[in-house]
Amino acid sequence: PKVFSKVDKNKQTPMTNSWIICLLVSIFAGLVPLNKLAELTNIGTLFAFMTVSVGILYLRKNKQAPKTGFRVPFVPYIPILAFVFCGYLIIQLPKTTWISFGVWLVIGLFVYFGYGRKHSTLNKTVDPLEKVS
């Protein structure tokens, strides 16, 4: 949404975005017990690490990895070990954390695809009758 892309003129930071997120985090921190927040943070972070590990393997296998910048040593061993160890830690989390994560993941996917379907700039179709110059 455009509200999240507004940047402060002086500091060049997303101030509106920061305040909205600050408010939401404060509400959750005030209403949800700390141990549950920690478990949800853990499962989200570990899931992200697992996704990145699979992404690294996919990009390297398909030769689409950038030649400069981000590098991973000992591919494929490090990404595979990262995936396995993060997976082990995730399965140690309680069932309620898994259920909460699943609910939030589904809500997030609905928001992501629901918003993206109408507002995506990559999904704009070109009129086939329009002349190409």
Score class of each variant (00 low, 15 high):
residue 87 G to W: 02
residue 14 P to I: 04
residue 67 K to S: 14
residue 92 Q to T: 09
residue 35 N to E: 15
residue 22 C to A: 15
residue 94 P to Q: 14
residue 96 T to P: 03
residue 108 G to D: 09
residue 115 Y to I: 05
residue 69 G to E: 01
residue 79 P to V: 03
residue 90 I to W: 01
residue 27 I to V: 14
residue 119 H to W: 06
residue 107 I to F: 09
residue 101 F to C: 01
residue 133 S to Y: 13
residue 35 N to Q: 15
residue 39 E to N: 11
residue 51 T to S: 15
residue 67 K to Y: 10
residue 98 W to F: 09
residue 65 A to S: 08
residue 6 K to Q: 09
residue 92 Q to F: 05
residue 87 G to N: 01
residue 97 T to S: 13
residue 72 V to E: 00
residue 110 F to K: 05
residue 125 T to G: 08
residue 3 V to P: 02
residue 121 T to R: 09
residue 8 D to T: 12
residue 111 V to N: 03
residue 109 L to A: 13
residue 58 Y to Q: 05
residue 102 G to F: 05
residue 52 V to G: 00
residue 82 A to E: 02
residue 51 T to L: 15
residue 46 L to R: 00
residue 57 L to P: 00
residue 58 Y to H: 07
residue 73 P to S: 09
residue 46 L to T: 03
residue 86 C to A: 14
residue 12 Q to C: 07
residue 105 L to E: 09
residue 86 C to F: 02
residue 51 T to G: 15
residue 40 L to S: 02
residue 50 M to C: 06
residue 77 Y to C: 05
residue 5 S to L: 12
residue 110 F to R: 02
residue 25 V to R: 04
residue 78 I to V: 15
residue 120 S to I: 03
residue 109 L to V: 13
residue 10 N to G: 10
residue 62 N to V: 10
residue 129 L to N: 11
residue 80 I to C: 07
residue 50 M to W: 00
residue 88 Y to A: 12
residue 68 T to S: 11
residue 97 T to E: 04
residue 127 D to Q: 04
residue 47 F to M: 12
residue 70 F to P: 01
residue 93 L to N: 05
residue 132 V to C: 08
residue 59 L to E: 01
residue 131 K to E: 09
residue 17 N to Q: 15
residue 61 K to D: 10
residue 115 Y to L: 09
residue 59 L to S: 05
residue 115 Y to R: 04
residue 126 V to M: 05
residue 24 L to K: 05
residue 13 T to R: 06
residue 122 L to T: 11
residue 127 D to P: 02
residue 71 R to A: 08
residue 57 L to C: 04
residue 78 I to C: 08
residue 69 G to D: 04
residue 38 A to L: 13
residue 37 L to N: 01
residue 77 Y to F: 10
residue 95 K to W: 13
residue 32 V to C: 10
residue 59 L to T: 03
residue 32 V to P: 03
residue 63 K to N: 03
residue 117 R to W: 14
residue 81 L to P: 03
residue 96 T to S: 13
residue 88 Y to I: 15
residue 24 L to F: 12
residue 33 P to H: 13
residue 115 Y to M: 08
residue 59 L to D: 01
residue 122 L to R: 06
residue 129 L to M: 06
residue 35 N to L: 11
residue 32 V to T: 10
residue 40 L to I: 10
residue 61 K to F: 13
residue 67 K to M: 15
residue 80 I to G: 01
residue 133 S to R: 12
residue 18 S to M: 15
residue 5 S to C: 11
residue 78 I to N: 02
